[in-house]
């Protein structure tokens, strides 16, 4: 770790702050994941880690590596963009999956289906197994 000795304080302090901010937010997100009571609440918790949690750590890495290499190293941006694009896809998919399963099982407190062909109308008479849900082509 030779770079640590020559690092000036005006680089070290923002890098350290960004690192600690990112790690703390990610940790808080997972604390929420364990602590919250319902699945739809828990769906919000990981976004802390994927928005500013990841951004803080990636910014810190970008600043530090750019300083030690002596040129702008921005490849952390690729991870940032990738996370920004993929997180909505996975969380939307999970939310829809949970909603679909809850509607089939008739869990109370779930808004009813906006009329659609692939979701059974009365929640009671459908089979509990999602694999047997109608609408499979």
């Amino acid at each position: 770790m030779s770079w640590m000795e020559t690092l000036p304080a005006w680089v070290a302090i923002p890098v350290a702050l960004f690192l600690m901010l990112g790690a703390t937010l990610t940790l808080l997100g997972t604390v929420g994941l364990v602590q919250l009571k319902s699945f739809y609440d828990r769906l919000h918790a990981p976004t802390l880690g994927t928005s500013w949690g990841a951004a803080g750590i990636l910014l810190a890495s970008m600043l530090l590596v750019s300083w030690t290499e002596g040129r702008a190293v921005l490849h952390e941006l690729v991870i940032g963009i990738f996370l920004m694009i993929t997180t909505p896809v996975t969380l939307m998919f999970l939310g829809r999956a949970a909603l679909h399963r809850d509607r089939i099982e008739g869990t109370p407190g779930i808004p009813g289906a906006v009329e659609r062909s692939d979701i059974p109308a009365p929640p009671g008479d459908a089979l509990a197994d999602p694999a047997d849900a109608p609408g499979e082509s």
């Binding site: 640590m4 680089v11 890098v15 690192l19 990112g22 990610t26 994941l33 364990v34």
Partner: peptide, 28 residues
């Protein structure tokens, strides 16, 4: 001075992230 700051921040980030992974693993 800056070596101390960086060592502390890196250790803190590693421990916090490892703990976060454990909590996510608990949910898993």
């Amino acid at each position: 001075m800056s070596a101390m700051i960086m060592t502390f921040a890196l250790s803190y980030a590693q421990i916090a992230l490892a703990l976060a992974a454990c909590l996510a693993g608990w949910r898993l």
